[in-house]
């Protein structure tokens, strides 16, 4: 039971961050290997604002999410937009993104060291629940994640910018011809995608220790969730995130905890082998 609760919590975080990754993947047509490190970046900024500047956690979270988005916008302006203008190939973009991942992660190590950190919050008593405990923080994570996912659904299906984003991810050239301001929509994709990643990051810091590699080790579960759910299928991604989160935690019942990470690798490879379009369908 405890494992299921933990799994749901991690699953929510994977789902939340993976949706951002999936959106960027669909719109810009490449895998952003730095996505996980934006997650870690957000957790560290929240930690810094919270402990070093002594700001309460809630405003610290908001500041951190804003800072992460700003960094993403900056990267769009100095890296991605110029590369799109140059007609860079997908492989070029992938390699640039892994370079960015290395830079981000090591800036965190450089400034804060490789050890673990925690927010400055009182440890609160968890609730007992069928013989397992669930902490208020864990409840907060699950609720926030689901609220945001509903919000995203509303955004994508009802608002103008959301519809433009979907048009773009279906066919960028067609969208350009039909008069959509592509660069603006791409910018919004980064804002929303990284906003979700950053939220996932600060929440992740609530339920585990903060360390520089936290985002990196989230990257594989995120991919696994996306591939499992079918690329470009947000509901599939959510379901995929939950499945990965649960199976990672449940695996610890039989395997050493170090192999949690291997679970998503195995699941992902198996899906690629038998049904690369994902078990919940989606665009190829």
């Amino acid at each position: 039971m405890q494992l299921i609760i933990n799994g749901l919590v991690i699953g929510s975080i994977i789902a939340l961050t993976a949706i951002g990754l999936s959106m960027i993947y669909k719109t810009l047509n490449f895998v952003n290997f730095a996505h996980g490190d934006f997650v870690a970046f957000a957790a560290y900024i929240a930690f810094f604002v919270n402990t070093s500047l002594g700001v309460h956690l809630a405003p610290a979270f908001l500041i951190s999410i804003l800072a992460t988005i700003l960094l993403g916008v900056f990267m769009e302006k100095v890296v991605w937009l110029p590369m799109r203008r140059k007609n860079a190939t997908r492989t070029t973009l992938i390699i640039i993104s892994i370079g960015l991942a290395l830079v981000l992660r090591n800036i965190l190590i450089f400034v804060w060291g490789g050890g673990t950190k925690n927010y400055n919050i009182p440890v609160r008593q968890g609730f007992s629940f069928f013989g397992a405990t669930i902490t208020p923080n864990q409840i907060l994570v699950i609720i926030t994640a689901f609220l945001l996912m509903f919000l995203l659904h509303y955004l994508l299906s009802r608002t103008k910018i959301g519809k433009a984003m979907r048009a773009l991810s279906d066919n960028i050239d067609l969208a350009r011809i039909s008069g959509i301001d592509v660069d603006k929509v791409v910018l919004w994709t980064w804002v929303i995608g990284l906003g979700l990643a950053a939220t996932g990051g600060v929440l992740y810091g609530l339920v585990t220790a903060i360390r520089p590699s936290m985002g990196w080790y989230l990257l594989l579960p995120m991919f696994a969730a996306i591939i499992l759910g079918g690329i470009g299928n947000p509901y599939g991604t959510i379901a995929g995130g939950m499945i990965i989160g649960l199976s990672q935690e449940l695996s610890t019942a039989v395997l050493p905890t170090e192999y949690k990470f291997a679970v998503s690798f195995v699941v992902m490879t198996a899906v690629l082998l038998v049904k690369p379009e994902g078990i919940f369908g989606g665009a190829k």
Binding site: I96, G99, N106, I109, F110, G114
Partner: peptide, 21 residues
């Protein structure tokens, strides 16, 4: 010492980005 290692990785990452760009 940990900073030196990180510094080297930052250089590698930046180099990768700049060369590809």
């Amino acid at each position: 010492s940990h900073q030196m290692g990180a510094f080297r990785m930052i250089i590698i990452g930046l180099l990768l980005m700049l060369l590809m760009m």
